[in-house]
């Protein structure tokens, strides 16, 4: 028993040390707000063209901000990094934001990057077309269990009261072979990244493809948005405003067809594995998702879509109770 107590005593300094380290990081960030980190959600590719453009073309620097744009990845979580003080701005999906809010995370949304969720289902059009939700009946549908696509698909099915036994859900991982082999009818893809690659392969073998866009079937589930911490917003509102203006200006410019070549060259520097022809298509699709029409300003927050996203998550018991996500939305762009 005495030995255990000694062990406990030994671990306490370590705990204090770790706490101090994280605290220091946080404190440091608050004092020197000009040096900041911006954590993306995913790897550097065409879907983050505006972020790369801002960094490469000095959009932050000219406004007096020193921002490091950091690549994201499956193991990264910008909201956690905001709270721990490792990042000052970040990109997070709506479900991440709502989950974080439901657990008391002090996070705020300052812009919505994608007006249309790039997460859609690719399918072969010679086999069928999905005009309405009930067309999904009898289909083998790929979903990533636990992922956003499962939530969206279940919402679609529930909307039309399609029972579980009326469709076959197929567990999807990184390997697209089941879709290529036509064992699965609908496969979830990010329309502006792997959707392009899969579509080009199928087209090369003479197959025509189409996409099921849940938004067109009445389910709006918000995708990536720009977030920061409440503390940042309260302590440095000007910095937040300057940051978001710089970033959205960069997005506008990067998606301007006049700057297409410049944007493609920039993305090509970071994403060396994607062929140029695919990059061109990815950029075009990203443009259609981020700025679907001229009247929509990049970064606009669609409050109704956010509310629907929250409702979907509540219905599917992904959050225990309402979080009133609209209170966490800060409309810099109107």
């Amino acid at each position: 028993m005495g030995g255990k107590l000694i062990k406990l005593i030994y671990t306490l300094p370590a705990v204090i040390l770790i706490s101090l380290f994280i605290k220091t990081e946080n404190g440091f960030a608050a004092q020197k707000s000009v040096q900041m980190n911006y954590r993306l959600k995913w790897l550097f590719n065409a879907s983050v063209v505006g972020d790369l453009y801002a960094d490469a073309n000095g959009f932050f620097k000219t406004r007096g901000l020193d921002v490091t744009v950091k690549e994201g990845g499956p193991e990264r979580d910008a909201i956690r990094e905001l709270e721990l003080g490792y990042a000052h701005f970040g990109v997070a999906s709506a479900d991440q934001v709502i989950r974080a809010l439901s657990k008391g995370a002090p996070v705020v949304v300052i812009a919505q990057l994608f007006q249309i969720n790039p997460l859609q289902w690719i399918h072969r059009t010679e086999k069928f077309n999905i005009q309405q939700i009930r067309d999904l009946k009898g289909k083998v549908i790929g979903v990533t269990y636990g992922g956003n696509d499962e939530t969206i698909m279940r919402t679609l099915l529930a909307k039309e009261k399609i029972a579980d036994n009326e469709v076959t859900l197929f567990s999807v991982r990184y390997d697209y072979t089941p879709f290529y082999q036509d064992k699965v009818d609908l496969w979830p893809v990010y329309r502006n990244s792997q959707g392009i690659t899969i579509a080009s392969k199928l087209r090369a073998s003479g197959e025509e493809i189409g996409y099921v866009n849940p938004a067109e079937l009445g389910v709006q589930f918000v995708a990536n948005s720009i977030v920061t911490s409440k503390k940042m917003l309260m302590d440095h509102p000007e910095i937040v405003k300057t940051f978001i203006r710089a970033l959205l200006a960069a997005w506008e410019e990067s998606l301007d067809p006049a700057n297409r070549e410049k944007s493609l060259t920039l993305v090509g520097k970071f994403d060396k594995d994607t062929p140029r022809v695919h990059l061109e298509e990815q950029l075009a699709v990203t443009r259609s998702l981020v700025k679907p029409s001229l009247k929509i300003k990049i970064g606009s927050i669609d409050t109704q879509a956010w509310k629907q996203t929250e409702r979907i998550m509540l219905d599917q018991k992904l959050i225990p109770e309402r979080v009133h996500v609209e209170r966490a939305l800060k409309h810099y762009i109107r």
């Binding site: 705990v15 706490s19 721990l84 008391g104």
Partner: peptide
């Protein structure tokens, strides 16, 4: 250790 860090830094349940 995790809980000590959580309460020492006032971290949310999300972290």
């Amino acid at each position: 250790l995790l809980l000590v860090i959580k309460y020492a830094l006032n971290l949310s349940d999300y972290v």
